[in-house]
Amino acid sequence: MSKKKIIIAAIILIVSIVLALATAIYRSQKAFRCDYDGTRIIPIYEVDIMLKEGKFMRFCSIYCARAWFQGNASRVDAVLVTDEITGEKLDADIAFFVESDVVTVKATQNRIHVFKDKTHALSHARQYNGKLVDNPFKLANARIQRYPQ
């Protein structure tokens, strides 16, 4: 085998490794930490909570967000969850929640999944022994309490 061929192959390999490493590291550094337990947030399971005072909190899973929410509901202005299929952020009030056998974040053992479409939620429930559950962030109730008519 000629030296020239080996050099070309080595260049292709090195360029590819650098490219893949750079992309992977860039993507991993973009990840944020959970405001409840400090776990690195996987974007697809992220829950964002907007506070009335204008602050913004990020959580790694429904579990952490709910744990924080229970003690601070009155401070919350909006809860945004992430559709597990597309990664799209949506208001928790219009999302579908499924509790299934699949764990999303190992650190919290969270088993509640979020979907934008009901068909995806039901399909996930059927595939992974799950069931539809209520929105864990009862913000609508909290708002009624805050602004009684």
């Binding site: 292709i12 390999l13 590819s16 490794i17 490219l19 893949a20 490493l21 992309t23 992977a24 590291i25 860039y26 993507r27 991993s28 973009k30 990840a31 974007p43």
Partner: peptide, 16 residues
């Protein structure tokens, strides 16, 4: 093929 395999492996090891 070897290089594409290495690239997949890198992405699986360093997930974002």
């Amino acid at each position: 093929i070897g290089t594409s395999l290495v690239m997949v492996t890198i992405h699986l090891l360093f997930k974002g």
